[in-house]
Amino acid sequence: MEFRLLQAHEPLPMELLLEADPSERLVRTYCAVGWCMIGEQEGSVIGVCVLLVLSDSTIEIKNLAVAESFRGQGYGRRLLQHALAEALHRGFQFVEIGTGNSSMDQLAFYQKCGFRFHAIDSDFFRRNYPEPIFENGIECRDMIRLRYTINN
C-alpha cells in the first residue's frame, strides 16, 4: 500500500469514510479542516485516515477505514502506523482517537497498537447522531477516547 495526502481537487472517498462514521455531515466537516490521507494499491483507494490538529502537541485521528475486502490483512495497522509517523514528522507529542463503547474490535486494535484509554465523552453518539447506533448488540452511546504518546 502506498500513502499520500488527498489533494483538494480530488473527491473524498466518501463510501469508505462512511464505514467508520455514518454521518456524512460530520465527515465533510472534519475533512474540510483536516488532512485526508489515503492508502492506495494498484491505483485503487483501499484505506483512508483523516487527521485533525487539536493543539500544538496533539493531533486526532478522526476517521480510519479500510475497504472491506482488504480487512484482516494488516492494512489498517499499516495505515495507522503511517499516521503515527506523520504525527511524529510534524512534531506532535500525542495522537488521539475516539471510538464507540460498542466497538469491541476497534478498541482491541487500538490498544494492540499502543493506544491507552484517555477519557470518555458520555452520550457523545446520542448528542451527535439523529438515530441510535447499535453494534455488537450494544447501543453506541459513549465515545471512548484513546491516546498514543509518541516516543513512549
Rank of each mutant, 00 (worst) to 15 (best):
E60F: 11
L107S: 07
W35C: 03
A32M: 07
G72V: 03
A87K: 07
L107E: 10
F115T: 00
Q106Y: 05
I46Y: 13
A67R: 08
L5I: 12
A85T: 00
M14C: 00
A119N: 11
L16S: 04
V95L: 07
A8Q: 14
N136G: 13
I144W: 14
R127F: 08
Q93F: 10
A87Y: 09
R126H: 06
S44W: 10
E40M: 13
N151I: 05
E135W: 09
L12H: 03
I120H: 03
S44F: 13
M37L: 14
P22N: 02
E86A: 05
V95W: 09
E42V: 01
S23L: 03
D121V: 02
R78V: 00
F117S: 02
V53I: 09
A67C: 04
Q41L: 12
V66N: 02
H118P: 00
L5S: 10
E40C: 10
L5W: 08
E40F: 11
F70C: 02
D142M: 13
F115M: 03
C140Y: 08
Q7D: 04
N151D: 15
F124K: 06
E139Q: 14
Q41P: 08
G114R: 09
L17I: 00
N128K: 11
N101C: 11
R145G: 06
N136I: 08
N151Q: 14
P22T: 01
G74Y: 02
S103A: 14
R116L: 11
G100E: 04
E131Q: 14
E19G: 00
P22W: 04
R127H: 12
I133D: 02
D121P: 00
Q111C: 05
R77P: 00
R147W: 08
F3P: 07
G39T: 06
I120K: 10
L5M: 13
H9D: 14
N151L: 14
I61R: 05
E135V: 07
G137F: 15
A32F: 12
I133A: 07
I38G: 06
I150S: 08
Y30I: 01
I46V: 15
N151R: 15
V50W: 14
L54A: 11
M14I: 11
G137W: 14
D121I: 04
A20C: 04
G98C: 10
E131A: 10
L107M: 15
Y30K: 03
P13R: 05
G72M: 02
P11A: 12
N63L: 05
E42Q: 12
F125C: 01
P22D: 01
D56T: 10
G47K: 06
P22M: 02
H89S: 11
H118L: 13
E40S: 09
G34N: 04
S55M: 10
G43D: 04
D105L: 15
S44M: 12
T99I: 07
Q41D: 11
P130D: 06
I59F: 05
M143H: 06
G114D: 07
I133N: 05
T99A: 03
V33P: 01
W35Y: 06
E40I: 06
F3M: 13
